[in-house]
Design a protein around this nucleic acid. Structure first.
Lengths: 226, 226
DNA sequence: TTAAAAATATGATTTTTGTCATAAATTTGC
DNA sequence: GCAAATTTATGACAAAAATCATATTTTTAA
């Protein structure tokens, strides 16, 4: 059982409002997991009963649409909490969480979190702020999906991926999604996604290095994103 | 100054967790307004500094997209609170709120709400649940926008309007949106919206009574919505 | 190592949706 | 009550995007 005091999740999430004593309680009740790339942390409809702390790795939150395609609603990285909404609403998961690379996570049971809600107002306020941030993002996402073209959205998404997940030494995006996953983020057919990537490549906005993608002209790409 | 005890907002929102004493405090600090149809309650980017209680009427929450079109993100009816996200995040409004019919609202200053956060855990938890409900809706909205056709979304929206806002004696939708607003909800061009309405009309799914809309075959419409 | 499977890529075609033009109906302001 | 303005409606066309087919490359697994 490791301590939670130095954990990256404590640094970036609402857990930062917990004091030493509370952190010890968390450390004593948490369970740690390793999730392999491609494996689910939880799936849509599953009862979660707590929150997951992402210590390392990325995952996608997605929902299966009635047309059979997977829509990626959000990407989550180290330092963030997962499952807050389900826990607060007392509902099964609305989205599936699938690891995009090997992950290290900790699970904190609901009972413990609810306990902190009652004793530590800064903690509840922090979690409320985090959920509010998600809501704002999601509303913006709706507007983008509704009003922008696939080309706009692909450009927007590539910029988001670079800004949120960084790049490798060779300038390619740190987070590597398959073309199908990328299409699932922007809400389009895989072929359309590939076609526009190829077009961006030809016009020098990006460079395709095998399956990897490097942004070549950020300013022009921003213009394409509108 | 009217009392808040019997107010519809108290019945349906997180205010239900407030006790008599707290309600008296709210009653003494609130301000009441009448908003005429078409007028804004607040606009995108405005600093709000509190929450609005909708006592009567409907309003739309919308955002101006980069393409110049207004995307309606959510409709709000009597009994609901407005501006919770901005208040919790301590940010200007992300969306504009425009009355769809004459409204009666009360404004409760932020300081008062934050005070309740510190003293009444059921109240904070209630508000957190309400925001979580919005987040779930918004995520579902993203999936619908990304994966469904305009036809699917129009059918879906008509059903939503009837189920959430009811119908008049003549079976037409209680809430009356212009074709432009309806297009703004489903994220399409006004002409496309009109065209599909006309198509639904011809195939007997709905009936167009002047500008008003009546759902004729709910089951078939549900199938079109997928 | 190599065959099979999966992912990426691209062309051809169809469907969906947006845009522009214009007409008809309705609402507004005097 | 009537002209002007706005909203609704519809046609013609263009643009965007999906689908289907197929080729090429990469990955996987025996």
């Amino acid at each position: 059982m490791s301590k939670c005091e130095q954990c990256i999740v404590r640094e970036f999430s609402s857990l930062k409002a917990l004091n030493k004593e509370e952190l010890l309680k968390v450390a004593s009740c948490k369970t740690s997991y390793t999730i392999k790339k491609g494996e689910p942390l939880f799936e849509e409809g599953e009862v979660i009963n707590g929150v997951y702390c992402v210590k390392d790795g990325f995952c996608k939150l997605s929902k299966l649409s009635t047309n059979g395609k997977d829509q990626i609603v959000k990407l989550v990285k180290a330092g963030e909490l997962l499952g807050q909404r389900s826990m607060v609403s007392d509902e099964p998961a609305n989205l599936s969480a699938i690891a995009l690379e090997d992950m290290e996570v900790c699970f904190i049971p609901k009972s413990e979190i609810l306990n902190f809600f009652n004793k530590n107002n800064q903690f509840s306020l922090g979690m409320m702020k985090s959920i509010c941030g998600d809501l704002k993002e999601s509303d913006l996402h709706v507007v983008s999906m509704a009003q922008k073209t696939v080309k706009n959205r692909l450009a927007e998404t590539l910029i988001y991926l670079q800004e949120s997940f960084g790049k490798n030494a060779d300038n390619t995006l740190r987070i590597q999604l398959s073309r199908e996953e990328l299409a699932g983020m922007i809400g389009t057919a895989t072929e359309s996604c590939i076609r526009i990537l190829s077009e961006f490549n030809k016009s020098g906005l990006i460079e395709l290095v095998g399956k990897k993608i490097a942004i070549k002209d950020l300013n022009k790409l921003k213009k394409v994103a509108e």
